[in-house]
């Protein structure tokens, strides 16, 4: 069985075909990232999550944050829930860990700007 996917590894958006029976062999990709994405998307889809947390004493009310790696797609809303409970205080440097090992994913939430 061949599954059709659009690669989201970069903005090019290659049209991939993944041969599920043939060890998830990927065709239609223009780079190695497509091979990794095609297989992972069908076995264990993951995503980077970006959002904001409340910041006190900053020039704005929200500090942008992101996961420092991909988390399972099924955990996105659990991570969002955790983020809603965070309040940080300025100054914060870009890259500072805001939540360590968020929802036991092994991935940290980090600040994506200084404020």
């Amino acid at each position: 069985m061949k599954k059709k996917l659009i690669c989201i590894a970069c903005p090019i958006g290659c049209h991939l075909e993944v041969d599920v029976e043939n060890n998830y062999a990927v065709t239609g990709n223009q780079c190695k990232r497509g091979v990794v994405y095609g297989k992972k998307e069908l076995i264990n889809p993951t995503r980077i999550v970006t959002s904001t947390v409340i910041i006190k004493n900053g020039i704005y009310n929200r500090l942008p944050v992101k996961t420092d790696g991909e988390i399972p797609k099924s955990m996105i809303f659990d991570v969002m829930k955790q983020l809603n409970e965070v309040v940080v205080t300025s100054p914060i440097k870009m890259g500072k860990v805001i939540i360590e090992n968020v929802c036991d994913t092994g991935i940290n939430i980090v600040a994506s700007r200084s404020m």
Binding site: C10, I48, T50, P64, K66, M94, S112, R113, S114
Partner: peptide, 10 residues
């Protein structure tokens, strides 16, 4: 590498 907008700007 893949960055967010604020990271790219900073």
């Amino acid at each position: 590498e893949e960055l967010t907008g604020p990271e790219y700007a900073e």
